[in-house]
Computed example of a mutant assay.
Amino acid sequence: MKMINSVIKLIILFVVSIAVVLVWQHKKNEPRVYVIHSYNTDLSWVNSIDEGILSKLKSDFSSTQVRFHYMDLKNHNGCNFRRRATRDVLYGINDWKPNYILLVDDLAQQLIGAHYLAYEDKRFPEQSLAEQLFSQDCPDQNIDFYQQTYLKDWDALPQIIFAGVNYSVKPYGYFEAVNTQGIYEHKNFVSLSETLLDLSHFCGEERATAVLPLNDNSSTAQRELVSYRQYSWFPLQLIAPATVDTFAQWKQQVELANANKAMLLIANYQQVKTQAGSNQFVPAKQLIHWTIAHAKYPVLGAGTNFVDDGGMMTVAIAGLEQGKELVNLMKFDRQELALVDSGVKRAEQFLVGLAARKTKQFCNNRLPAIYQAYAKETGLYLFDDVSEVLYAEP
């Protein structure tokens, strides 16, 4: 009897061991996806992208292991914080060795993506492009820590898939690599200009005749200046797009817009300093509240958080599409030739955010009724004591 019990125990132990090995092997073979955001979840843009990623992973890659990391560089943009945030991500990549790195917004490309490029001739640069880019912004920082995280095996380099890039990935070296692909976050200028024209027509007898793009002095805003200038805003006049460093400079631009019958177009506003030389930023809600109160003409947003921060209306790129496309691009193997600009997907979807009650300040609530009707039809119409908000993605 004892022998039989021992045999049974051995059989059970054998079966359990086989099961453990099979589970371990299955986990080992599951694709590992590391999602790295430049910013944090206090931005609805980030949450919308995550929603797109998770829904698409669930339907197309259900067995995938996924981790999310938020660098929080919108709220903390100093060199020391940037260095620590970058170091943490690089160590995480070196430890977990993901198959795919999904990078969102420009700073993640600059600080992380440029470090893991696979070039056609299987060479490694003498100095990482990431180091060069980092040293340009923070020349006094010791960047030796990058050397500790190099992947020496060219074939082991992960696939880099990017989203949320406002202008081009050329500065990050992505057009020299065969393991890069992604989707741009270029503004939908056609939708923005059409909306501005609607606002100018519905806003009283003294109609706005111009538009002034106003943004903070962040690297993202700087990169978009060319696009604002190149687009034809006719019949509206374009007042020179401005990127400002301080609240005082921001106020001057609002006065300039008022003097020129210009509507303001605002996309980036989280990094406006309280005063010259300060490391403190004006809180976003405070900045937008002041702007709305002092602007004589409509103020249109071009970012997902604008209405949440107190703005009247926004027309922004849909984060949901960006997230889903990140996962779609996982289906493509490493290409034989380096990425080219024409191979980067362009955003097709945009969302509309509307605080309907605020339209009375400028437009006597005379915006096209289709906005409200569509929001109610799709269940995206929210009402409380403060505002009515719709977010609609086609």
Rank of each mutant, 00 (worst) to 15 (best):
K360D: 14
I49D: 03
G182C: 01
N166D: 13
L13C: 03
S193N: 14
D333F: 01
W45H: 07
R334F: 02
K273L: 15
T243L: 02
F362Q: 07
D60N: 13
R223A: 14
P171H: 13
A156N: 04
Q270M: 11
T314H: 04
G92W: 06
Q253Y: 06
Q286F: 06
N99E: 15
L10N: 12
V272S: 07
V169S: 10
A221H: 13
Q132E: 12
D155M: 04
Y269T: 06
V20G: 04
V21I: 10
E377R: 04
I112W: 07
P283D: 09
E51F: 00
K9N: 04
A259Q: 15
Q286A: 14
W154T: 03
I8D: 08
Q141D: 13
Q237F: 01
E321P: 01
V344K: 01
S278G: 12
I317K: 11
A276Q: 14
D308P: 00
P283H: 10
E205V: 05
Y70R: 15
N328Y: 13
V299I: 05
L103I: 07
N217M: 08
D309F: 12
V327S: 09
W24A: 05
L192M: 08
G323F: 00
G379E: 05
V315P: 02
S17E: 08
M312I: 07
K122Q: 07
E176D: 14
L157F: 05
H26K: 15
I370Y: 05
Y39C: 03
D384F: 05
H69M: 09
V190H: 12
N328P: 06
I183D: 05
A240T: 14
L390N: 06
Y297I: 00
K58A: 11
A177T: 02
S128I: 00
Q222V: 13
D341S: 15
G323R: 11
V15W: 09
K331Y: 01
V23W: 12
Y231S: 04
A108D: 10
K187L: 09
Y297H: 08
V16T: 06
D88S: 13
Q252H: 15
K122Y: 03
W233M: 01
A208K: 05
R229K: 15
F14E: 01
E206T: 04
L57F: 02
T243Y: 04
A240F: 11
H26I: 06
R229V: 04
L133C: 03
Y381P: 00
Y184T: 06
I239V: 13
I288A: 06
Q147M: 06
P235R: 15
F175W: 02
R334M: 01
N5L: 12
Y34W: 10
Q181E: 01
A177P: 00
L196W: 08
T41S: 02
V104E: 12
F189D: 03
A108S: 15
D95L: 09
